[in-house]
Write a protein that binds this DNA or RNA. Structure first.
Lengths: 189, 189
DNA sequence: GGCATTTGCCTAAAGGCATTAGGCAAACGT
DNA sequence: ACGTTTGCCTAATGCCTTTAGGCAAATGCC
């Protein structure tokens, strides 16, 4: 019985690929075992259980996404930064639909606190430095941007905008124009 | 063996209640059978399979939501209508989280075409009559509103905004202010 | 009302996934 | 070299889905 050299990290990576291929909801410990050519029970030395696997994939996705976002934001500000961040989310969801879904996986509070989630909020906030917003409107705006990015990407991914004119690239571009305009003319209370 | 009086409709309703209690992802034919006090196999006379059950719950949710939206919009326009529609989604998600998730269930194209999905788009479009938008910006705006509503509700439901000040009711209210302002000052291309 | 047909619910069985227990051999430390 | 740890295996249990085949209740026709 030669050893397969499994680690939680490797299993998480393979799990993430699996998610992109079959959808995060269909990620299964059994299928993962097949992929790494090992019997199912063997995985339980490396993963607590199925939920643990999902959690790890979610954490991986959140970090990859945060890393990409950090890269994209470097040296940009204003609308340029807004567009760059928005595109990171949208492109990631297109390239890695399973991982993107994983990033939405509900984590328990402790795990969430230790995740890259905070970096995401932080980066969105950074973008707003290019606009003239003070608290509490800045927080409202962070949440609004999060809502639009996630909502748009998730609807587009789910086929919500499918096959109807005008094409979704147009809408995306105009959506970013609109958000930029909104942030520049944020309404008074 | 007294008959239980099952129908696809009743099973769908019970399935929807089940979804609200345990989450749409955990809706199971077996649990449904327990709830209606019948053996599992019996359900297969009324439901094609598990996927069929989910589809029916999704369609139910889409219709309930569209009905509520239609009620809420009656006699309103402008920001009043915008707020009313937005609250329908948010309130529905709070009252019926499982059904709300179900409404996001990806339907196959034919089923989607026959669903209440079109009514939703239509009602969002109706709101925009209170603002001065022409095609294709009207469509872009429909998609943006859909993104914000869905994104906000889904992040809030997932605990994304949890426990941080300011409270989410504030943000929601200011988000609607912002959307209204945006629609009144939609940026030129 | 009696009788044939349809329909609804049941038992049985097969196959899949998750998870735990217990065993043997490879890798590692001294 | 040898004892310990560690990794992967077999076996077993339990829950879920889905199909096949049977019996009894409802339905409809005369």
């Amino acid at each position: 019985m030669a050893r397969a050299g499994l680690t939680p990290q490797r299993l998480t990576r393979v799990g993430a690929e699996l998610a992109d291929e079959v959808g995060f909801d269909h990620v299964t410990v059994s299928e993962l075992a097949r992929r790494v050519d090992v019997k199912v029970a063997s995985l339980y030395s490396h993963l607590r259980n199925s939920h643990d696997l999902r959690t790890r994939i979610a954490l991986l996705a959140l970090e990859e996404l945060a890393d990409r976002a950090a890269d994209a934001l470097a040296g940009r500000s204003g609308k340029d930064a807004l567009t760059a961040l928005a595109n990171v989310y949208r492109d990631y969801a297109r390239e890695h639909p399973g991982r993107y879904t994983a990033a939405q996986f509900r984590l328990d509070p402790d795990t969430a606190a230790a995740s890259a989630g905070a970096r995401h909020a932080q980066m969105t906030r950074a973008i707003l430095r290019g606009y003239d917003l003070t608290e509490p409107d800045q927080t409202h705006a962070v949440r609004l941007l999060g809502s639009v990015f996630h909502g748009y990407v998730s609807l587009e991914m789910g086929g919500g905008f499918s096959h109807s004119a005008p094409d979704t690239q147009q809408t995306w571009s105009r959506t970013l124009d609109a958000l930029d305009a909104l942030l520049r003319n944020w309404p008074p209370p």
